[in-house]
Write a protein that binds this DNA or RNA. Structure first.
Lengths: 208, 208
DNA sequence: TAATATACATACAAAGATGTATGTAAGCAA
DNA sequence: TTGCTTACATACATCTTTGTATGTATATTA
């Protein structure tokens, strides 16, 4: 069968991306060949080359599937300042919990995170991805910092530390949490207590 | 030239490992071939195959170069309980700072960490490495927890949180810190403030 | 409905990488 | 000094992977 309609073609493209995700997860990005991906998607390499220039482009397509919506969401929860019913600390907590709950709900997201974190080598074309992630992190930290400043203004936290230090600490904590969460794919070590740990992390900042 | 003495041979092996480290760092583990490594070490693939079974074995040899000494050191700083001049919180702080300072001092260590964290895909033979790391982490957390318990016993920290929660929070924080530290190879974003951030993290726990 | 572009499948050539087999000169032990 | 072993280098066969070129049947459009 050849020459499908446009909708059919879009479907094939999706199938290829889904297949690539599965193959990347199983064999790592480097060891995955276009042939593997094509087979998994029940097409030939011809179809793959039609929709994507090469493996790298597939990787980026998959990545964007998760990262474009992600930052919007963080913004939503964190930056929704006006007459918020929640205090700033709870906003940060909610933002972090939201990400975890999203991961809990979506296997696709989990898989993409796993690929990005431990099934990909950041060299050459992929090195740029790292810098992009780092940049995004910076803007995240800034948002945490603003929230902590609001919390300080409302006298919710002990004035031990600067908002900046608190924001960085939270950011590193959550980075570490995400890594552990992903690596603990059996869910026995970290996943089940992730939410508690976020609450604990925030509680540590609360004035009694 | 052929047939060196035993000492010469050991030297060649080291040279191959050093070369492999450089090549892994530059091209990632997967894209590195034994030919690349041999060329970098100024030998032929014959020499490489003589000293190592395959690429995986080289990787493990490099890895052990760092991880075997590492855990000893953490133990040294953290578990050296008897009549310690430092309070438990400072011990934890010192242990974390020590690791960062070690990384600061040794380019070799930095490179190996970078390879392990962002230039290697954890599939197949490498998947086991991840589990090993996770296991080591668990024992680390236990050591933090013991230290925090001692701190609680000495009434050094507010009783807001359990020692277990504090230990996990510290562990995740430091995991995140290490990742950022390594990724920020230019040193502009995180490296220069790593020590401060560790102090801030610990200070957050201190009773005023 | 004829022409063209689309959505693939198939075939081919070239390069890369791996493992092994074989060669060889020098060290070392008896 | 002979003979065995070590520490490699060289050569070869095989498999994989990639990119591209070509074929082709069907949508789409004018």
């Amino acid at each position: 069968m050849v020459r499908k309609t446009k909708e059919d073609a879009e479907l094939t493209k999706r199938r290829i991306m889904d297949a690539a995700r599965a193959v990347f997860l199983r064999r790592g990005v480097s060891r995955s060949t276009l042939e593997h991906i094509a087979t998994e998607a029940n097409v030939t390499r011809g179809a793959v080359y039609w929709h994507f220039k090469n493996k790298t482009e597939i990787f980026h397509a998959i990545r964007e599937q998760v990262f474009l919506p992600l930052f919007d969401k963080v913004d939503d929860v964190l930056s929704h300042v006006p007459d918020s019913s929640k205090d700033p600390l709870s906003q940060i907590e909610a933002s972090l919990c939201q990400t975890i709950q999203d991961l809990d709900a979506s296997q696709t997201q989990r898989e993409i995170y796993e690929i990005i974190m431990i099934k990909c080598e950041y060299v050459d074309e992929f090195a740029a991805v790292l810098h992009q992630i780092l940049d995004n992190c910076s803007s995240l930290v800034e948002k945490y910092e603003l929230a902590y400043q609001r919390a300080q203004a409302k006298n919710l936290i002990a004035p031990k530390l600067s908002a900046h230090a608190l924001a960085l600490d939270t950011h590193l904590f959550f980075g570490g949490l995400l890594h552990m969460w992903i690596k603990d794919s059996k869910g026995t070590q970290f996943r089940h207590q992730a939410i508690e740990m976020i609450k604990a992390h925030i509680d540590l900042r609360r004035k009694l």
